[in-house]
Simulated scan of single mutants.
Amino acid sequence: MKTMNARKSALALVGILALGLLAGCANKAEPRYSPKQLQRFEAQAELDTDWRQRVGQGLGRATYPIAPSLDNGVIYAADERGRVMAFDAQSGERRWQTDLGVGVSSGLTAVAGQVYLGTRNGEVLALNQSNGDVSWRTRVSSEVLAAPQPNQQLLVVQSVDGVVTALDRQTGRERWVHTTTEPALTLRGTGTPTVIDPVTFAGFANGRLVTLDNRSGQPLWERRIAVPRGRSEIDRMVDLGGQPVLTPDGRLFVTSYNGRLVALEAPSGEILWEREHSSYQTPVLVGDRLFTVNEASHVIAFDARTGEEVWRNRDLEGRWLTSPAFADGNLVLGDFEGYLHLLDIQNGRFTARTRVDSSGISLRPVTDFRRIYVLANDGRLEALEIKR
């Protein structure tokens, strides 16, 4: 009876997650894939817990994507009520804590002495890394779910209405704004832009990828990645929900929901290769292999040069995996029941698994060689080490 009840609870949670993923005029959504039961395997490594901490009330009932950020030996994390904390990444000792008095809704970005984040009421804040004091705060067009993205001078913010705003990193002053038309029904949230000094690559819920000139916000080129198809509004969703992956040699990899995985030339937008592939997650590139998680929670390795599939792991189907991270030769993924999975990047086989927290893991783990930092949905922050 306990097993049956646990199974029903898991299926109920998947239904809730499916509903929470949608925004706009959706009234209901049925999960397409039932979660597979986990199978035993011969572990090739162990995951040892180094320390644990509590980050306020966690991600909240809406499971806001408040991903932590690691910079210069300190990990910064926040809860949905606006409590921000800094922890020593090695020991877990808390350095400081501040209460913003406003609900945090975006992932954190820690860089060059500042921590940047967005809020539910459409503000962007910069906090001093040394003590958590607010350096500046600026209002943008609407709620911010995507982590703000910096270059040397700008902080680029994509809000849920599809507006991209560039702010001065030092002062928060608005530099330029780019707007687009969004469909009535979208996945909850937005894609996260990829920002370098000259340009910003931004994906939208209308299935388009745009390259913006960072001097003015004017489009340099635009490419349709996914085309709406099907009869229902859900079938016709084509959100670019992940973050474009840019390589040093100028290739760009983009995923889309109900669409394609596309490799492009970043300077021109010319398509190098494409594959049918529905995903709202951000891929990770390791060497010449591109690793993605599709909407069914299949983990897939592609040859980044040709787009040919190298391997596919279907054992975690329906388990609402996070975007993949990379650590010590492994892909690192969390799932809706709070398990952390390690897969060998060479063949996709499991190397280790542990359960972090029963509240679930919806955020991509943060990794640093063999160290993994995981923030569970209820606010439990855990640092783990890969041991062989």
Rank of each mutant, 00 (worst) to 15 (best):
R7I: 11
I16F: 10
K28V: 14
S34V: 13
Q37H: 14
A43E: 15
A45I: 06
D48Q: 15
W51Y: 14
R52G: 03
S69V: 02
S69M: 06
V74I: 12
A77P: 08
A78T: 01
D79W: 11
G82A: 02
R83D: 10
R94T: 12
Q97N: 11
T98V: 14
V104Y: 08
S105N: 14
S105G: 09
L108G: 12
L108A: 07
L108S: 14
A110E: 04
T119L: 06
G122I: 09
A126W: 00
S130D: 12
D133C: 10
V134L: 04
W136S: 09
V140N: 04
E143N: 02
L145H: 00
Q149L: 11
N151S: 09
Q158C: 08
V160E: 07
A166F: 07
R175F: 00
R188M: 08
G191S: 02
V195P: 04
D197Y: 09
T200P: 00
F204S: 08
G217K: 03
P219D: 05
R224H: 05
S232W: 02
L240V: 11
Q243V: 02
P248A: 10
R251K: 15
N258W: 04
L261D: 00
L261E: 01
V262R: 05
V262A: 07
P267M: 03
S268Y: 09
G269I: 08
R275G: 04
H277T: 04
S279H: 03
P283S: 11
V284W: 06
V286G: 05
A304I: 04
A304C: 05
R305M: 05
T306C: 09
G307N: 06
R314N: 11
G318D: 11
R319Q: 08
S323G: 05
P324Q: 03
N330Q: 05
V332P: 01
V332I: 15
G338T: 08
Y339M: 06
H341Q: 12
L343V: 10
D344C: 08
I345P: 05
A352V: 13
A352W: 03
R353M: 13
R353I: 11
I361C: 02
D368K: 07
I372C: 10
A376K: 01
R380E: 12
E385T: 09
